[in-house]
């Protein structure tokens, strides 16, 4: 496997495309995270909140996106992770996760990150600062 430190500016980590979002994904995340806001799991509550249907927890998408970096945790760790939520994620949406290296400063790699849906619309974007362990 390629090392994260081998990446050149402008290069990207391998993109991940998630399976279509299912209700079970969101029920599992509600249970694991403790966020039981019913707009994420119950149709009627979503409608009451003027939404066309249930929506994914923003933190579910943010949690998923971080896994782009999991293969590199032996080399370093996520030190800063900043996200702006741009759009809602609905059931059956197909979310793509991307990270592009934009800056390298000694032991710190800065990536622009984005999760987008099947209409190529960003549902969230931001940045990750990946800090390389000093012994590497």
């Amino acid at each position: 496997m390629k090392l994260i430190t081998d990446l050149q500016i402008g290069e990207s980590l391998d993109e991940i495309i998630l399976n279509p979002v299912s209700r079970l994904d969101l029920i599992k995340y509600a249970g694991a995270s403790g966020d039981f806001n019913p707009i994420h799991t119950i149709d009627e509550e979503a409608k009451n909140a003027s939404l066309p249907g249930i929506i994914a927890h923003g933190m579910w998408t943010m949690g998923n996106l971080a896994k782009l970096f999991t293969p590199f945790l032996e080399e370093g760790f996520i030190q800063e992770y900043s996200i702006r939520f741009k759009g809602m994620v609905f059931l059956e949406d197909i979310i793509s996760l991307k990270a592009n290296l934009v800056e390298t400063e000694s032991k710190k790699l800065t990536f622009n990150v984005e999760a987008s849906n099947q209409h190529q619309k960003a549902v969230m974007n931001g940045s990750i600062l990946f800090n390389i362990h000093s012994k590497n």
């Binding site: 019913p38 933190m59 760790f77 030190q79 800063e80 900043s82 996200i83 939520f85």
Partner: peptide
């Protein structure tokens, strides 16, 4: 309340995992 709130931004800073 648990309803009617929109999550706009989220930023984490870590000293270590």
């Amino acid at each position: 309340p648990s309803k009617g709130i929109i999550h706009g931004e989220q930023n984490y800073h870590y000293e270590r995992p």
